[in-house]
């Protein structure tokens, strides 16, 4: 059954329509891939779920998390959903972690806030999480700062932060784009594994159809603020119905399906 259902989501900023009626369905234990050209509104869709759209954005439609509509939720309640039930991983781990706060601080503060853990419990859970995302030597890593880690390690830390409060939905906005090709696979495998083990519903935004075919269960394709095609991975990638998807696939060099 669907955990997060986006229906007819419209977003406009300064009179400009950025999303023109997006529908998406995320289900537990499934990775939903979201592709589309630059500027098609993938990031805006993700941000809309968390209520983090830029200043002055107007929204309409419905984003249902279970029974509740996130768009209609009061700010305070939405804050408990953020990080608690829906978490997000951003594109560039070099900028999405605070450079002056230790890894432990950034891993534990929202746990303590959302789950009411004390310092000790939070630290124990943080060590466990660092292990889960395969950071070597969690005991040492927890007291270090982001700049002391490589890009791939930082993105693992960002994922650990997202997972800390056991969210049901994880939105990953191009989590591997800023990483070396060699570490991309590791991060993707980690995401896939966590999705299977924890029963997360994952929205994986990516440019890369190769990434998509490797880990996604369902695939949606966006163009100019609309979802133009959606369906199971095999069907969409092998047998696209929309000309835009076909063009996307054809532009992919050496794609083997």
């Amino acid at each position: 059954m669907s955990l997060l259902a986006i229906s007819d989501l419209k977003v406009s900023i300064g009179g400009k329509e950025i999303l023109r009626g997006v529908d998406l369905d995320l289900r537990a234990g499934r990775v939903h891939g979201l592709a589309g050209e630059s500027g098609s509104g993938k990031t805006m869709t993700g941000l809309a779920v968390l209520g983090l759209l830029p200043h002055g954005a107007r929204t309409s439609g419905r984003i249902a998390l279970g029974e509740r509509d996130l768009l209609a939720m009061p700010a305070k309640e939405l804050n408990t959903v953020r990080g608690g039930e829906v978490a997000m991983v951003f594109q560039d781990p070099a900028t999405s972690l605070h450079p002056m706060l230790s890894v432990g601080r950034q891993l534990t503060e929202h746990m303590r806030h959302h789950l009411g853990l004390d310092r000790k419990q939070a630290r124990a859970r943080a060590l466990e999480l660092l292990g889960q995302v395969r950071i070597p030597g969690p005991e040492a890593a927890i007291d270090r700062y982001p700049h002391q880690f490589s890009g791939g390690m930082r993105q693992r830390i960002a994922i650990a932060i997202a997972l800390a409060c056991s969210p049901k939905v994880l939105i990953a906005d191009e989590p591997t784009t800023a990483l070396d090709v060699t570490v991309q696979a590791g991060v993707l495998r980690l995401l896939r594994g966590l999705c299977d083990d924890l029963g997360l519903a994952v929205l994986l935004v990516t440019h890369d159809l190769g990434v998509m075919s490797a880990v996604a269960d369902e695939v949606s394709v966006m163009k100019e603020g609309l979802v133009v095609e959606t369906g199971p991975r095999g069907q969409v990638l092998r047998d696209p119905t929309h000309p835009y998807t076909r063009a996307l696939l054809e532009s992919l060099p050496g794609e083997t399906s």
Partner: peptide, 21 residues
């Protein structure tokens, strides 16, 4: 900055984001 948006995405209260981040 990205990290401020990331802190918001964590659901931290506004005053924590302001003072700490």
């Amino acid at each position: 900055q990205d990290y401020v948006r990331a802190a918001r995405a964590k659901g931290l209260p506004g005053r924590v984001i302001l003072f700490r981040y």
